[in-house]
């Protein structure tokens, strides 16, 4: 019986070793190709985007109205009939939600002589965290650059809301049976897929929103930085943030002054998720021993806390 098992074990071990060598060899040979496809993806060549120029925006909120019309949402409230440029139409800082896919907020910076207005909506990341986080694949990154969402497969777990570095996906709570995520879809169905610019871009009187191919928009942005030195803070928000976004921003002041989150990592969120997942097995293997050790230590301290030698002993026991 014992011998049989041993023979069996020897046989298995040998084949296992062979297999392991083969697996390691395959893994090594495959590594570069896998890396280049996963890490060096910088978006589709056909990725469209929008360049938002804060120095041009006058806060009129035409883009908000156009967006809600395009998507059949209620018109935004608090609009002024005879709007005067740079006049705030609200005080609070709003977030896009299930009733408004885009909002324009006002920011006051000591570095700028008049209020700044920043349009916020989905940035349509090149490597979207929401897409990566969704385990039923409700999100799609289209070759045109839009990150779109399919409510028919969504199970309502809201992981995407947590994953998004810009906190954009919003959950529609008002209908219990038709709950779904709501966010800017780059007007994909009605416009982008037909080669038309999004509704907000077309409505903007100041051309604060410039629509085009993302690579071209980066060139335009750099041209503005070069041609009008002094007008802009010399960075393009979205060029690298979260691994690069389709919507890019130019601002006259450092971005944090105008309500941007400058702590957003420059790598795609995907990379962090991978690191985090790698940490989990480590936690599972180390933590039980660690906590058992702490528990025993505490217990031994309680029963006999007069000698250090005993404590050392108990430590040894745990290590074994």
């Amino acid at each position: 019986m014992k011998e049989e098992t041993r023979r069996g074990t020897t046989f298995t071990r040998r084949s296992l070793l062979k297999g392991m060598v083969a697996a390691v060899a395959t893994a090594i040979s495959m590594r570069p190709s896998r890396d280049s496809s996963a890490h060096d993806f910088h978006g589709y060549d056909s990725n469209r985007g929008v360049l938002v120029d804060l120095t041009r925006c006058i806060g009129c909120r035409s883009c908000e109205v156009a967006c809600s019309q395009e998507h059949g949402l209620a018109p935004p409230d608090g609009m002024l009939e005879n709007y005067q440029p740079l006049e705030p139409q609200y005080r609070e800082t709003r977030r896009p939600d299930h009733q408004a896919f885009t909002v324009v907020n006002q920011y006051q910076s000591p570095l700028y002589d008049h209020p700044l207005f920043k349009k916020t909506q989905c940035n349509h990341c090149l490597e979207p965290a929401c897409l990566t986080a969704c385990f039923v694949n409700a999100y799609t990154k289209t070759p045109e650059g839009a990150v779109i969402y399919n409510e028919s497969v969504c199970v309502g777990c809201r992981t995407c809301m947590v994953a998004c570095p810009f906190s954009i996906p919003a959950f529609r709570y008002d209908s219990a049976f038709d709950a779904q995520i709501m966010k800017c879809n780059f007007c994909f169905d009605t416009r982008l897929s037909k080669g038309r610019p999004p509704a907000c871009v077309e409505a903007c009187p100041m051309e604060a929103l410039t629509f085009g191919y993302r690579d071209e928009l980066l060139k335009i942005a750099r041209k503005r930085l070069r041609d009008l030195p002094g007008r802009y803070h010399r960075e393009i928000y979205g060029e690298f943030e979260a691994g690069g976004t389709s919507w890019l921003y130019l601002s006259p002041v450092p971005f944090e002054e105008a309500g941007f989150d400058t702590r957003v990592p420059r790598q795609p969120i995907l990379h962090f998720v991978k690191d985090f997942l790698a940490v989990v097995p480590m936690v599972l293997t180390i933590w039980p021993g660690l906590f058992a050790g702490i528990y025993l230590l505490a217990k031994s301290n309680k029963t006999a806390d007069n000698t250090t030698s005993k404590e050392d002993k108990s430590d040894e026991t745990i290590e074994r």
């Binding site: 038309r196 871009v201 077309e202 410039t210 629509f211 085009g212 191919y213 071209e216 335009i220 041209k223």
Partner: peptide, 18 residues
């Protein structure tokens, strides 16, 4: 922001892209 102009702007030798 329509059609051909967007593609034309991708021409590397074009100066008036903005």
């Amino acid at each position: 922001f329509y059609g051909d102009l967007l593609s034309a702007k991708r021409n590397l030798s074009r100066y008036h892209i903005d």
